[in-house]
Simulated scan of single mutants.
Amino acid sequence: MQLTTATGYARALSPRLVVGMATTSHDVRAVQRLRYRVFVENLGLTALKRADGLDSDEFDEHCDHLVVRDVDSLKIVGTYRLLSPAGARRLGRVYSENEFDLGRLNGLRGRMVEAGRACVHPDYRGGSVLMMLWAGLLDYVRRQHCDYFVGCASISLADGGHNAVAVYDTLRRTHLAPAEYRVTPHLPFPHEKLEAARTAQVPPLLKGYLRSGAWICGEPAWDPDFDSADLFVLLPLANMDARYARHYGVEELAA
């Protein structure tokens, strides 16, 4: 079986899964149902609860939706919402601006893709789906002729926020962006008022970004709807380690 995007890019990755772009309104509704299942039914985010069982907002119609399918059932089991520079121009903003002042990044807007709403079906967790989404995301960035990927990486506050404090305290020492790329949260997460957990447990998605060369761009924002502390992440593709790029089959991104 091959990894295939809507543009025809293909590589063998998995005998059961295939990644590509949603191409129909039926696909988009399936994406929204999956997001609802994960965010509302599994994670209990009641602020997103809706009678139609869909997680949707005004951004969906302006975004491209990366999906991973089970080839036997054709069920969508993973997704990423991708906002291209053209989509951001139509909207007049990116989603992250709900949480952060991105004024210092104005010069990058024409060269950056924003990714968000990443989720994987509970029955398909374990690495393969996330790896395929990540590879598909990087291919999409390249095909948009962009140099940067941006997005919000969420850290659950289910433990009272102690792990979020530990993660931020660790990453600001090791992965903080240069000053010219710093952003400011509209609603800061009060990390200085909480005790850090003894060991920082970095979420898998954020860990993958950091291993690829991403930076965090300042203090976390508090997202009450998702019960999370969110870090704004910026990945210049020039930062990507060549060995890590080869792992995902996208060597050209590290060139």
Results as ranks from 00 to 15, higher is better:
78 G>I: 12
19 V>G: 13
71 V>M: 12
208 G>I: 08
46 T>I: 09
98 N>D: 15
181 Y>C: 07
186 H>Q: 12
141 V>D: 10
208 G>E: 09
216 I>F: 10
49 K>W: 03
56 S>C: 08
71 V>F: 02
37 R>L: 15
158 A>I: 06
115 A>H: 05
63 C>N: 00
216 I>P: 11
123 D>E: 15
251 E>L: 11
91 L>Y: 05
90 R>W: 02
62 H>P: 00
138 L>T: 05
35 R>P: 07
18 V>Y: 04
90 R>T: 08
133 L>F: 05
166 A>W: 01
180 E>T: 09
76 I>V: 13
37 R>I: 04
164 A>V: 05
189 F>R: 05
134 W>P: 07
149 F>N: 04
233 V>L: 09
28 V>T: 10
10 A>Y: 10
77 V>Q: 04
1 M>L: 05
242 A>P: 15
235 L>V: 11
78 G>F: 11
45 L>M: 15
171 L>V: 10
200 A>L: 06
171 L>E: 02
152 C>K: 00
196 A>S: 14
80 Y>V: 09
13 L>M: 09
111 R>H: 06
218 G>Q: 09
136 G>R: 01
137 L>T: 12
137 L>D: 03
238 A>Y: 02
84 S>Q: 01
66 L>Y: 00
85 P>L: 05
166 A>E: 02
198 R>K: 14
36 Y>T: 00
186 H>E: 04
84 S>V: 04
158 A>L: 14
240 M>E: 05
94 V>E: 09
106 N>L: 02
151 G>L: 06
52 D>Q: 03
213 G>W: 03
86 A>R: 07
114 E>Q: 08
33 R>M: 12
165 V>Y: 00
252 E>C: 12
115 A>W: 02
250 V>I: 15
86 A>E: 14
130 L>T: 14
180 E>R: 11
43 L>C: 09
81 R>L: 05
184 T>F: 11
211 R>M: 13
71 V>T: 15
238 A>M: 03
155 I>K: 04
53 G>D: 03
137 L>M: 13
170 T>H: 14
227 D>A: 11
198 R>N: 15
190 P>N: 11
144 Q>N: 05
75 K>F: 00
133 L>H: 07
247 H>R: 14
224 P>E: 10
12 A>H: 12
206 L>A: 10
145 H>N: 15
244 Y>C: 07
113 V>A: 01
24 T>E: 01
14 S>I: 05
166 A>M: 00
145 H>C: 12
120 V>Q: 02
58 E>V: 08
205 L>E: 05
195 E>M: 11
151 G>R: 08
189 F>T: 13
246 R>A: 13
205 L>V: 14
236 P>N: 05
87 G>D: 01
253 L>V: 15
251 E>Y: 04
143 R>I: 03
251 E>T: 13
205 L>K: 07
96 S>K: 00
161 G>E: 09
223 D>M: 06
55 D>L: 01
15 P>D: 13
172 R>L: 06
109 R>W: 01
192 E>N: 10
210 L>T: 12
66 L>K: 01
7 T>A: 06
47 A>R: 01
11 R>M: 06
185 P>F: 05
20 G>K: 04
78 G>E: 09
160 G>D: 03
147 D>C: 03
125 R>I: 09
183 V>Q: 08
35 R>Q: 00
53 G>S: 04
143 R>A: 11
125 R>S: 10
73 S>I: 03
70 D>E: 07
40 V>P: 13
230 D>C: 04
37 R>P: 02
